[in-house]
């Protein structure tokens, strides 16, 4: 694993406001191999913008700048938009938060997945269909033939998210960015979906960036964790070391989660004056 899959140096994302440009990501650097990286933070910490910036999905007037942003050795920033489109989906995929809003409501599930495949590969109709059914089976959908002919409103949230995963993985990308993939799902289904992502990522030797606000969840499914606050990484550690986190922000986030054996009369709330930045 000599060359990292993705290498980012000094990534900055900014948006204009009436009082001047505001940076929402302030100089982020990291290298990602074929491993699972978790990015954790509250809303507004810049974690989702980081994911979008990698895919060059930050729209004007937002502005992205980085000293270096290389994917498989290619600088992404200078790629023309056409080359970028070949990369998106085919090499780097992103799973969005809510299947309800990310699936096309007037297209059957099977056609949507096929479309994702046809955008990047030239395949005959029969081969496409086979790949679609195979993929649906891989995301553990019991009756792929039936589900492929259904519309998004006819399937449940958990199944919708599995369809999304199928769609994102069918062109066999080497990096998967999952932005809160399970926050719209039930606890019981959450674990299933994450186990599935985990298994597929391992089997295909992909890199994974899991973006979430849930520290415990990220620590279970990732090798490494970056904790972000106000556009900066405040702490970076191995997932197994999370409970030994040093930064008050990380400790605060950990303490704010209610526990199954809850006895505390009130939950500790983040004291935002404790650290600089905000």
């Amino acid at each position: 694993m000599s060359a990292p899959l993705l290498s980012v140096e000094d990534l900055r994302v900014s948006f204009p406001t009436p009082t001047g440009r505001v940076e929402v990501v302030k100089g982020l650097s990291f290298d990602l191999g074929r491993e699972r990286l978790g990015i954790v933070g509250e809303s507004g910490s810049g974690k989702s913008m980081t994911g979008r910036a990698i895919l060059r999905l930050v729209r004007a007037p937002g502005r992205v700048a980085a000293k270096r942003m290389e994917f498989e050795g290619t600088e992404i920033q200078s790629l023309p938009e056409r080359r970028m489109r070949d990369l998106r989906g085919a090499r780097i995929s992103m799973i969005m938060q809510d299947p309800k809003f990310s699936l096309n409501p007037v297209m059957t599930v099977g056609r949507q997945i096929a479309e994702a495949l046809q955008a990047h590969e030239r395949l005959g109709r029969r081969a496409t269909r086979e790949r679609v059914l195979e993929m649906l089976e891989a995301v553990r959908i019991n009756d792929p033939e039936r589900v492929a002919s259904m519309y998004p409103h006819e399937i449940s949230g958990g199944m919708g998210q599995r369809v999304m995963i199928a769609m994102m993985l069918i062109p066999r990308p080497s990096l998967l960015i999952a932005d809160e993939p399970t926050s719209a799902l039930d606890v019981s289904v959450q674990a299933q979906v994450l186990d599935l992502i985990d298994e597929l990522v391992r089997d295909h030797g992909m890199g994974l960036i899991l973006i979430s606000h849930d520290l415990n969840l990220v620590s279970r499914y990732c090798d490494r964790i970056m904790v972000m606050n106000a556009g900066r990484v405040v702490e970076s550690c191995a997932a197994s070391e999370l409970h030994r986190a040093q930064h008050p922000y990380t400790q605060g986030l950990l303490a704010a989660v209610p526990r199954m054996h809850e006895t505390r009369p009130t939950l500790p709330v983040l004291d935002r004056s404790q650290w600089s930045g905000t």
């Binding site: 509250e42 809303s43 606000h213 520290l215 704010a256 209610p258 009130t266 939950l267 709330v269 983040l270």
Partner: peptide
């Protein structure tokens, strides 16, 4: 809501 904000709202509801 985020976990940190969830804690604030749960405390509020309890109070």
């Amino acid at each position: 809501l985020d976990v940190s904000v969830q804690a604030e709202i749960l405390n509020l509801l309890k109070r």
